[in-house]
Every structure is written in C-alpha cells, then in structure tokens.
C-alpha cells in the first residue's frame, strides 16, 4: 500500500469517462489525454483455450465485425455498465498505462470514474474494483449527470436548478442539479448504440439488406438528424442483400434515417419530460428560464436540440465539445477533492 503511494507520486490523477462507445481520460493539469473506443480484441489460443488481448481501442475497433474465427472484438461495456469484468480491467489497465507511456515506474494514479446514475450497487462496485485492479490507488465515483454538468460549465454550486441531458453511447442521463447535489436524476438505456440498432433494423425491414454496426454508425454521423430539416441529404450504403445473399449497394436519405430513429428519440424526449414533471417547481422554473444543456456524443446528432426544444417548449443549449464534457467535469471534480467537501461524489 505504501509502495502504491510512492508510485502515486509519479502518476497523474485521472478522470475516466468509461463509456459504452468511447473511453475518455482526462489527466489533471493536462486535459483530455485519451479518447479511444471501448473495444478490446481478444484472441482465443488454440492450445488450452487461453485468451490474450490482441488490440485495444482504435486498433480493436477497426477489427469489429472483421475478425477471423479465433479473434473476437468485443465491447466490454454495455448500457453504461460493465458486461465483461476481466476485459474491462484489461482495457483500463492498457489505457492507464498508455497515458503514462513515458514512465518507467508502473503508474498508480488516483482515479475518478463516472458512472451512470441508474447503475446498481453491484455495477458500481464492479467498476470500482475494475479500476482498482487496473492499478488505481484510490477510486472515486461520480454520477454522470453531475460530471457532465460540471464539464459543461453549469453553475452547479448555485442555489439554482440546472438541467443536463447527457446522451451517451449506451445510456442517456437526465439530471437536475442544485447546490452541488443531484436533485433528480433518471437514466434511460437509450443512446448512440440504440440509434445504430434501429437504423440496422430499418434497413433490414425496408431494403431487405443487412448492414453492420460500423456502417450504421457512419450513416448516423453523415445523414442522421433528429428533426426534419429543409434539405434532404443522401448517402450510398453497401450491405448484404438477405434474399440474394450478395453484397449490394443502395441509397439512404436523411428522412428515412429520421424515421428509423424515431423510437429511441422519443424515448429520450419522454425521459426529459418525466424529469421535468418530477422536478420541484422552483427548480423547474429555473430550468424553464435558462434551458436544458445537452452533452455527450448524442448532442452531435443534427438538430437534437431543436427536437427537444420543440417537444418541451424550453430553450435547449448544446454544450461546447459535448463528447468530452463528462471526462472534463470529472477532472474538475478531482481538482476540488482537496479543497472542497466531497458532496458530489457518489457512494458505492
């Protein structure tokens, strides 16, 4: 233990946004130092069935859906929580080591991990142990809406309600924050992955063609939108025709994608509406006056703010650099550990 403390002197405090789609690491005093997909490629050895890690992050993502039989590229996080404990630990270990690359001494940083507010005690404990297993000397947990709000620059310490909507890869979190604490929070297991799935399903239903996750994600990035716009964008996509079994190419347009994503989008909107219903009236009026802040990768979906504004009738604001909000917020929280009450850290 004492040795970990000494090693800690050679490590940076880290804030980790362990997301379903991407893992971001913010190092104290350095900013975002790592932003890689949460994907691990594992090889099953022929002798004895031993498993070894082949690639992590960007390299592993390139393998997703393109692996030979003995390699599987997996995403160890599902719905914002750990689906595969050991693989998550390996991934964290790799990432923590990567941000300390130049050091000889094995890093042992203090780590703050952001967890979905809907995660259970068991899931939180799993994340905590995973980080500890990856070499962290202290692990703090903070709920994602809190970190997102801090990262977006909301005045969390004021006695005013601020509402933040964080649309991540696996979950969407709505939180109302006042006086450094979460007044209301709700997590819906809808996120970027859900959008991709619904695009895959839509294409299979209407075109009789099967497309992969990576293609669906590219479609979403290129022509996806949450609100009918004036211009219609098109994109050529290749997939496997289910009837012929042959790869075929066809064209999708933005209205089709909007239609495809209707269901998950409505899920997010209803989560926001429920949150507004549940918010105490004083805080609700603060939110109505200033607006809802959207963070997370989902905020990059075209016109998502217009959709929510239209549905709720409130001003909606997109945070700057929404992808990194949670990690940055966690980093700021780490800065405050020393000189503030730790009231925004969640207990296990």
């Amino acid at each position: 233990m004492a040795f970990r403390r000494i090693r800690g002197l050679f490590s940076n405090d880290l804030s980790i946004d362990l997301g379903t789609a991407n893992t971001l690491i913010y190092a104290r005093g350095k900013g975002i130092v790592l932003n890689e997909p949460s994907v691990v490629a594992i090889r099953q050895e022929h002798d004895g069935g031993r498993k070894t890690v082949v690639a992590v992050g960007e390299n592993a993502k390139a393998m997703l859906g393109r692996t030979p039989q003995n390699i599987t590229a997996i995403r160890p996080m599902k719905d914002g929580v750990i689906a595969d404990f050991t693989v998550t630990e390996k991934m964290l270990q790799y990432f923590i080591h990567k941000v300390h690359e130049s050091r000889i001494i094995r890093p042992s940083p203090r780590v703050l991990v952001c967890v979905p507010c809907g995660s259970t005690q068991v899931e939180r404990r799993a994340i905590k142990e995973s980080a500890a297993g990856a070499g962290a000397r202290d692990v703090f947990l903070v709920e994602e809406p809190m970190a997102a709000a801090i990262g977006a620059g909301l005045p969390v310490a004021e006695a005013r309600g601020s509402m933040v909507l964080d649309i991540g890869g696996g979950t969407s979190e709505v939180g109302v924050i006042s006086l450094n604490g979460i007044v209301y929070s709700q997590s819906a297991r809808i996120g970027g992955d859900t959008f991709d799935e619904s695009i895959i399903n839509y294409v299979r239903r209407n075109y009789g063609t099967f497309i992969g996750e990576a293609t669906a994600e590219r479609v979403k990035h290129t022509i996806g939108s949450a609100f009918p716009g004036s211009e219609v964008r098109e994109m050529e996509v290749k997939g496997r025709n289910l009837a012929e079994g042959m790869p075929r190419s066809f064209t999708l347009n933005s209205n089709e994608i909007l239609e495809a994503m209707q269901e998950p989008l409505m899920g997010i909107v209803s989560a926001v509406k429920i949150a507004l219903e549940q918010t105490p009236p004083e805080l609700g009026s603060d939110v109505a006056e200033r607006g809802i802040v959207v963070t997370g990768g989902g905020a990059l979906l075209r016109d998502i703010d217009r959709l929510i504004a239209e549905e709720t009738g409130l001003p909606v604001v997109l945070a700057d650099d929404p992808l990194t909000c949670v990690a940055r917020g966690g980093g700021m929280a780490l800065d405050w550990i020393d000189d503030r009450a730790m009231d925004f850290f969640s207990t296990e």
Binding site: D13, P155, V156, A157, W336, D338, D339
Partner: peptide
C-alpha cells in the same frame, strides 16, 4: 473555459 467556480490547484501530488 473558466466556469462559475474558480478552480484552485494546490499541492499537486506530482
């Protein structure tokens, strides 16, 4: 980048 709270950085362990 400055938010509502001033961020105090003291005794960095590193």
């Amino acid at each position: 980048a400055e938010s509502a709270q001033p961020i105090k950085r003291n005794n960095q362990p590193g």
